[in-house]
Design a protein around this nucleic acid. Structure first.
Length: 271
DNA sequence: ATCATCCCCTGATGGC
DNA sequence: TGCCATCAGGGGATGA
């Protein structure tokens, strides 16, 4: 389940492997992703990849003819850069063949991901246009959260998972960050002080930084056979630890549902 | 404007 | 061994 750290790991892993390479051919093996891969995708043939960016959980591949590929890994997507002779795997839906025999394969069992093409500024694409600040940027701060929360009664966990509030905070790291900040996941967004939003902002930055750092250790293996950036063996304090002892106070971790998503918290540490 | 609910999909898991 | 139900989750679409 790629969250921002996984996508950033993918971006960093891709850079040395495909930047400045020339696309010789492509293959759409199954166009039916979250949105169909457009027929216009063939316009990337014979172009060079000039830049690899990330915005939230979207990867943006810039080509030298001003086209941009917008890629989302969804829940189960991964990208592998391999040798042409590596056998195709089930769910390898999209393939890019480079002039130097390298092959990029987009694999996504659940097909919640997407591959789109735009000839415009990708940041104005409908999917990207209303995204909130990057969590690791200075634009993401306590004032911003407090102002966005205004009088909203939505649970803070849903609030920080809303991409218009801040991008890249998924279910796992939302639970972890709220634990670190000592905030109950069901607390109404408007009922959190500026001071406590400061703790939450720092917790989100810390959790994501840690995950990216541990992701970095797997970059070396990025082009091996499974093609996955690897999931982080990060120390999870609450996620998936229902009934286990809280690392801070030993009280059993609770599981609850917030907005159809499982959520974990310590009832003693989080208010 | 805000928010809850639904849905896309496959793989892993567990019960019978 | 097989079959079925259940769960997981990013995030857009929909309707209240």
């Amino acid at each position: 389940m790629p969250e921002l750290p996984e996508v950033e790991t993918t971006r960093r892993g891709l850079e040395p492997l495909i930047l400045n390479k020339i696309i010789e051919n492509i293959a759409v093996r199954n166009a039916r992703l979250r949105w169909p891969i457009p027929d216009t995708i063939s316009a990337i043939k014979n172009q060079t990849i000039t830049r690899i960016d990330r915005r939230g959980k979207y990867l943006i591949l810039e080509l030298n003819n001003d086209l941009h590929l917008i890629v989302h890994l969804g829940m189960s997507g991964s990208i592998g850069v391999l040798n042409k002779s590596t056998p195709l795997k089930k769910h390898d839906h999209f393939v890019i063949y480079f002039k130097d025999n390298a092959v990029l394969r987009f694999n996504d069992p659940r097909r919640f991901g997407c591959i789109l093409l735009t000839d415009d500024n990708p940041l104005t694409h409908p999917l990207l246009a209303s995204l909130g600040p990057e969590p690791l940027s200075h634009d993401f701060n306590a004032q911003w959260l407090k102002q966005k929360a205004n009088s909203r009664m939505v649970a803070v966990k849903n609030f920080i998972m809303n991409a218009e509030v801040v991008v890249g905070v998924g279910n796992i790291y939302a639970s972890e960050a709220l634990f670190k900040a000592g905030i109950h996941p069901k607390r109404a967004a408007s009922r959190i002080s500026l001071r406590r939003y400061g703790f939450l902002v720092q917790a989100i930055k810390d959790v994501l930084h840690d995950a990216i750092r541990s992701g970095g250790t797997t970059l070396r293996d990025f082009s091996q056979s499974d093609g996955k950036p690897g999931y982080f063996q990060q120390q999870l304090n609450v996620y998936g630890r229902v009934n286990q002892a809280c690392v801070m106070c030993s009280h059993p971790i609770k599981k609850t549902c917030i907005g159809q998503r499982s959520s974990y918290y310590c009832p003693k540490c989080q208010h």
